[in-house]
């Protein structure tokens, strides 16, 4: 057994819930607002995302431009709304992909054990040695810039985490007397694995995957910040910061700070939701 299992076991160790119900509600509302903003960006954005306003370059917030404009005079609010699309969609795909693949492989490894478990464990060990951002950068080096290769690479990078967690939970469930009781009652392995064990571990895995969403969001934005992900002029939070970087030394902070704050708010909201879910679920599953 290598280290990440332990790390994850520790990460989901019982902790006092420090998030109040109102905080949780606010987090859900914020995330919902961001999602709606992204989906309906064309309808609600005051300007097209790449329309320059040469009279208002690096403008401060004003009635015309609520959040101000960037170095090319583009409206920051509009770019923020459009940018939410790539910023949120990428992590969503990664979380769905890695959770689906990871849970299946984890169930397979944990339930069947033996050589399948050993072989999958070795594969996970190798993948763990590739931090997700590194794998994403490598994918860009191979297949070129953009979001597609990194999203696939990160799904692969996160799947072992989900798989490890699922595997260890399944292994623990498997030794529980209730599983033996199903066997003695004559139920088949497939029924027990899919109808009983899998539903019992899903909530914990799901909550953990929610927490992954925040990390992936930050990492994909970071990739665009490095200029390796979403390419300008497509609006994306990371890419916006990248473009705005040159202006910082000149004292034009706003074009960088606005998307940066958006990233932080999104990640905080997702993490609060994930933590709260873990806390609620953690109580139901004896460790």
């Amino acid at each position: 057994m290598t280290t990440p299992t332990l790390a994850m076991r520790v990460l989901r160790a019982p902790r006092a819930s420090f998030i109040g119900r109102p905080t949780f509600t606010v987090a859900v509302l914020v995330l919902a607002a961001m999602t709606l903003g992204a989906v309906f960006a064309p309808a609600i954005a005051p300007y097209p995302p790449d329309a320059p306003d040469f009279l208002a370059v690096n403008a401060p917030p004003s009635p015309a431009h609520w959040l101000g404009t960037d170095g090319l005079g583009r409206d920051l609010l509009s770019r923020l709304l459009y940018g939410a699309r790539t910023a949120l969609l990428g992590p969503l795909l990664v979380v769905i992909g890695s959770t689906a693949v990871g849970m299946l492989l984890g169930l397979l490894a944990g339930w069947r054990g033996g050589w399948i478990d050993a072989a999958l464990g070795r594969v996970f060990d190798v993948l763990f040695a590739f931090p997700s951002l590194l794998l994403a950068i490598m994918a860009v080096a191979l297949f070129g810039k953009g979001l597609v290769a990194p999203v696939i690479a990160m799904s692969i990078a996160y799947a072992p985490f989900v798989a490890r967690l699922t595997r260890s939970l399944v292994k623990a469930e498997r030794t529980r007397p209730y599983v033996a009781a199903y066997r003695v009652a004559g139920f088949g392995g497939a029924f027990i694995a899919f109808r009983s064990v899998l539903p019992n571990v899903t909530p914990i895995v799901g909550a953990q995957s929610t927490l992954n969403f925040g990390y992936v969001l930050a990492e994909l934005a970071g990739l665009s910040f490095l200029g390796l992900g979403v390419q300008p002029p497509t609006p994306d939070w990371g890419a916006m910061i990248n473009e705005a970087q040159a202006g910082i030394v000149g004292g034009h902070f706003l074009p960088a700070i606005v998307p940066a704050v958006a990233v932080v708010i999104a990640v905080v909201a997702v993490n609060i939701i994930g933590e709260e879910l873990s806390d609620r679920i953690g109580g139901g599953a004896p460790a």
Binding site: G214, A218, E219, A221, G222, F225, G238, I241, Q245, I248, V249, G251, F253, A256, I257, A260, V263, V264, V267, V268, N271, I272, E275
Partner: peptide, 21 residues
Amino acid sequence: TVLSAIPSFVGSIVLISVFAV
């Protein structure tokens, strides 16, 4: 939890803006 939501590129630009510039 708040610190965990500050990716390094955000931290970088904030620190540069405040303490360097």
